[in-house]
Simulated assay, not measured.
Amino acid sequence: MDQHLHTAQQPLRLGTPQEDVFAGPSVESDMIESSLHSIQKFVPTDYASYTQEHYHFAGKKIIIQESIENYGTVVWPGATALCQYLEDHTEELNLEDAKILEIGAGPGLVSIVSSLLGAQVTATDLPDVLGNLQYNISKNTLECTAHLPEVKELVWGEDLDQKFPKSSFYYDYVLASDVVYHHYFLDKLLATMVYLSQPGTVVLWANKFRFSTDYEFLDKFKQAFDTTLLAEHSESSVKLFKGILKWD
């Protein structure tokens, strides 16, 4: 089995992610508690759905807490493909100290790998998965990255100019993996990608192509961005694209 493929382990004990966080030394707990401030908790209805999934990137074993109850608490194939690309092209992408925002970070694997590779990372997602996202990021980056990642709420297409004003926020890279599937927010997703792109920003989008709507989104993406296919994995139907916003 490829070392980057994850394997299911035993479920965690019956507790919320936040409860597990505070089992460590008091100093670490204080730091994590601070980073968890104001983050909405993710509390699954079935604690037995928790598993610990193991990945290896950036020379480190990464343990991700996942739950099958929510699309946003599972690592999908596009995420591992994007992580592999980031690891293989770290110097070419100049990731050290790069400012990165991940859209739809889910359980956080891509943001964690980006942080381990030296980037300044902001991981974003919907409110209901932020607690699990923060838990995974804290567990895997605390005291082993140059920059502690930030977790922020981002609802696609909503309040972007208030929460991410262009005058204050600039990103070298906007990352997204498996954010395109059968849902009704694809136009808002594209609008968010466009909004977050400023001169010099590169969008790296990896996705498993499943439905005709995925290709329809790709067509719209190509209309907004100068698009390059960076990698294609036929066995998993994952494609990785680089996009640079077209300027009038």
Rank of each mutant, 00 (worst) to 15 (best):
I112W: 00
V194Q: 03
Q3L: 15
I100H: 04
Q120G: 00
Y195D: 03
G78V: 07
Q198Y: 04
P11A: 05
S237W: 05
Y71C: 12
F209C: 09
N136Q: 01
A119H: 07
V27D: 09
H37N: 08
L95H: 10
T227A: 07
Y50I: 02
Y181S: 12
L186N: 10
Q10Y: 04
D20F: 14
E96I: 13
V113F: 04
Y171Q: 08
P107T: 06
G243N: 06
N140S: 01
E28D: 14
V21M: 04
V27Q: 13
K208I: 06
I112P: 00
L160F: 06
Y215F: 15
L82K: 07
I62F: 02
L154N: 06
D128M: 10
K152S: 12
L14Q: 12
H182Y: 11
F209I: 14
T228C: 05
G78P: 10
Q18M: 03
Y135M: 01
P77Q: 00
T192C: 06
E158R: 10
Q84H: 11
E66R: 03
S29Y: 01
S177G: 09
M1K: 08
L5N: 11
D161H: 15
P25A: 15
K139G: 01
D187N: 12
A123P: 10
K152P: 02
W76Q: 05
Y215N: 15
K246V: 14
N207W: 09
K41I: 00
Y71I: 13
E33W: 12
S67Y: 03
D161Y: 10
G72R: 00
Y181A: 06
T124G: 07
T192P: 09
H182D: 15
E66V: 06
V75Q: 03
L101W: 08
G59Q: 05
E69L: 04
L245V: 15
V113E: 03
D46P: 01
T201H: 02
E28S: 13
T141M: 03
Q18C: 01
L133N: 01
S26F: 15
S49R: 11
L190A: 07
V75A: 08
L126P: 02
I39P: 11
V21H: 00
N136C: 12
T192K: 02
T213G: 06
D187L: 10
F217L: 10
S114H: 04
K239D: 03
A191F: 05
A191V: 04
Y50R: 03
L186I: 10
A206Q: 08
P25K: 12
V113M: 02
P44W: 10
D88K: 15
G108D: 05
K239Y: 09
H56I: 11
